[in-house]
Design a protein around this nucleic acid. Structure first.
Lengths: 351, 351
DNA sequence: GAGAGGCATGTTATCGGTAACTCTTCTCTC
DNA sequence: GAGAGAAGAGTTACCGATAACATGCCTCTC
C-alpha cells in the first residue's frame, strides 16, 4: 500500500532528523495530511489522525519552527530588546515577558542593547523582517531602540512614561508602564508626614529628560506641601553612583530624608551615611524604589516602593499578543500598582 | 534591459518587505548573485557588487535569517536554557553568553526552565531540530535539561562540576566550570587562619548531590586542618532561606564563622545574626560566595568569593562556537579564577 | 588558431513547512 | 435516480534563502 503521489525530494533516512515527509511516508498519507494533524485542523478522519500521531511519536518528529514560520504559519516568536539585564527592574520585566510568552507558545529571543548602539543595527537583530518585538525602555538606549524600529514591526514596550498621545513613533498605544510619578509623590508625602522638613532626591538616569517621572512626583509632593525643593542629585544605576552622589550632601545635618531612584542607589546612600556618622533612621531616613529582593534583608532593611515589574512584563506580552492575534489572544493581565513598603530605614525626623 | 531569466514567483511591491528577488530585479541581476554579494563570496565583479549593495541600501533590504538557516546557510542562532534568571550567577552567565554570541553574529533565544519541567518538553523549545544550545546547569533543573537534550543537538554548558569522564550524556568535553571546590577551601582556610576553631557552612541546593563542590571544598579544608566538621545547614537560594537556616545555629556562641553558598544566603545569615544580638565581625565572621554587586555596599560589607560568571558565559559560547565551526571560530577566551575578596564581615575569632 | 581553464552569472533543486485548489467518494434532498 | 454538498485526502504553488551545476565569454598556452 505505497504512496503513489508526490514523493519527498529527499532520500530520507539520512542523518538528519525526521521531517514531515518522513512521517507522511511511514503513515502512508500525504505530507499535507500530516500538516493538518499537526495543526489540529478539521477534515481528517479519526483513524488517519490516530495513525499519524502514532507515527509522529514513533519517529520523535518535531515540527521545524523556522519552516513553519517561513511558510506563513502563525507567528510564534518574539524578540525582546533590553539594555542592561544587570538591573533589577529590567531583569524582572524580562522574566515576566519570557514566562508569559513561553506559556502562550512563543519562543523568545533576547538581544541586549549597548549604550552606544546605533539605530541602524536594530533591524539586524531580528530573525526576519516583521518579527514582533518587545522593548524594555526604561533608559535612553531602550527608548532610542524603540524609536529606531522600522514601522512595519509589531512592537509592544514597557516604558517609564507613556508616549505623548499621537506620537506614533513611540509605539502609540502599545505600551505599558507603572505610575512612578504617583508612587514617588506618595513616598515623599510619607516622609513629610514623619516630620521631615523636606526630602532630598537622588535621581536615576532618565529616559525622558528633562522631566523624569519619579523626579516629577517627588517635586509634585514637595510643592503641594509648600516645602523647599532641593536640587536633585544625579546618580547612575549602581550603589557606587549613589554613594558618590550624596557624599558631600551628607555633611549638611539639615538633610534628614533622602528618596532614591532605586534600591541600589539607596544602598550606596546608606553606606555613605554610615561613613559620615549618620544613624539610619535616627538621623536620616532613606527610601528606595523597586523593592529588589535583597532590600528586605539589608541593615537596616530598606523602606522602598514595590514595583510589579514581572506583572508589567506579562502585561506587555499580553498586549503584543492581542496586537498579533486580536481574535484569539486572552485579555491583557492586570499588574499591581506601586506600593510603599515601610521597613527600618525610615523614621521620624530628628528632634 | 529586463531580466529574462526565472522571475520571482511573487507579485513583488506588495505590502511585505523586500526579499532577495526584489533586490535582484531592481539591480538587474539574478537572485543568486545577490546571495553571493550578501555572503561576501568571490566571483562577483566589483561593478555588480557595488550595484547590488546600492540597491540593498535603497530598498532597506535585510536578509531573512529564518530562510537563510532553512536553506542550509551557516548556523547563526543559539538557544540558552537556564532555570532562574533572578539568581545573580545565572543572570551574569547569561549576560556573558549573550554578549559573546551577539558579537559573533549569533542571535540568541532564551528559554527559562521550570523546576518541575519534564524532560520531554525540552526539544519543543528549540526552533528547529539540531539548533545549538547552551545550558546554564548550576542547579538540578539545568542538569536535568542537559541530560534530556536529544543527542543530535550541539550543546555547550556552564556547570557546577565537570561531568565524570566518559559520561557523554552530560555533554562530554563541551563544558566550562569554575573551581568552586578550591575556592570554598580557600575561603575556609582564610577563616581558620583568623583563629576560628571551625567553620560552619550554609549550603545552596546542589546540582550534584550528594557531593556539591562548595561543600566538598569546605570539608576538604577542615579535614586538612584537622578541625571538627559540623553538619552543613541546608539553605535555598534566597536571603530568607539563609535567615531561616541559621536561626537556631546562632544561639550557640561557639559558632564564630559561617561560610555561605552564595551572597544572598549570607545576607539572610547576617540579618539573623543581628537579631540574635551577634556582632559582625566581632562575634561572628560571615563569608559569602559570588560577589554579587550589592555585596560591597552591605552593612557590614561582605567578604566573599568573586566568581567570573560573565567570563564563564563568554567562554561557554566560545566553546560552542568552536564546536560548530572548528575551522573559523576564534580561540575560547579565558576566564578568571575565583578570588577571595576580604571586606568587613570577617575578622579574628573572638577571644 | 583551437582547446583549456577561469571568471562572472544564470538555472534548477532543495530546506520543511503552510495555503489554496483539486479530486474522489459518499450522503442527502427532491 | 440525479445533482448538490461536504468530507477526506492529494497536488501544486510559494515562503526566502543557499548549494550545486550549467552557461557564456575571455584570456592563455602551445
Amino acid at each position: 500500500m505505497g504512496v503513489t503521489g508526490h514523493m519527498p525530494p529527499q532520500d530520507a533516512s539520512r542523518g538528519r532528523s525526521a521531517s514531515i515527509w518522513d512521517v507522511a511516508r511511514v503513515a502512508g498519507v500525504s505530507q499535507q495530511t500530516v500538516s493538518r494533524v499537526i495543526n489540529g485542523k478539521a477534515r481528517v478522519s479519526e483513524a488517519t489522525r490516530a495513525k499519524v500521531l502514532q507515527v509522529i511519536a514513533e519517529l520523535g518528529y518535531r515540527p521545524n519552527r523556522l519552516a513553519q514560520t517561513l511558510a506563513g504559519g502563525p507567528v510564534r516568536s518574539v524578540t525582546v530588546l533590553t539594555s542592561d539585564t544587570a538591573l533589577y527592574g529590567a531583569a524582572a520585566t524580562l522574566r515576566g515577558m519570557e514566562e508569559a510568552a513561553r506559556t502562550a507558545g512563543f519562543s523568545v529571543g533576547i538581544s541586549v542593547l549597548q549604550p552606544d548602539s546605533q539605530q541602524t543595527d536594530i533591524a539586524l537583530r531580528l530573525n526576519r523582517p516583521g518579527e514582533p518585538v518587545m522593548v524594555i525602555a526604561y533608559d535612553d538606549a531602550g527608548v532610542r531602540a524603540l524609536r529606531a524600529l522600522p514601522p512595519d514591526v509589531p512592537v509592544a514596550a514597557a516604558v517609564e512614561r507613556r508616549a505623548d498621545e499621537g506620537d506614533a513613533a513611540d509605539g502609540g498605544p502599545w505600551q505599558v508602564w507603572l505610575d512612578d510619578r504617583a508612587a514617588a509623590a506618595h513616598a515623599t508625602r510619607y516622609l513629610l508626614g514623619l516630620g521631615h522638613r523636606t526630602v532630598h532626591y537622588v535621581a536615576i538616569p532618565s529616559s525622558t529628560s528633562p522631566s523624569p517621572q519619579r523626579t516629577q512626583g517627588w517635586r509634585d509632593a514637595l510643592r503641594a506641601a509648600d516645602r523647599p525643593v532641593p536640587e536633585p542629585s544625579h546618580g547612575g544605576w549602581t550603589p557606587r553612583s549613589g554613594y558618590l552622589a550624596v557624599r558631600s550632601l551628607l555633611a549638611d545635618r539639615s538633610v534628614t530624608a533622602i528618596l532614591c531612584g532605586n534600591d541600589d542607589l539607596a544602598l550606596g546612600v546608606m553606606r555613605a551615611a554610615r561613613e559620615a556618622g549618620r544613624d539610619i533612621p535616627g538621623d536620616l531616613s532613606v527610601v528606595g524604589f523597586d523593592d529588589a529582593p535583597p532590600s528586605a534583608y539589608l541593615n537596616p532593611s530598606l523602606t522602598t516602593v514595590r514595583l510589579d515589574f514581572e506583572g508589567l512584563g506579562r502585561a506587555c506580552f499580553g498586549l503584543l499578543h492581542r496586537r498579533l492575534e486580536p481574535q484569539t489572544a486572552p485579555p491583557v493581565p492586570a499588574w499591581s500598582e506601586p506600593e510603599l513598603i515601610v521597613r527600618e530605614s525610615s523614621g521620624p525626623a530628628p528632634a
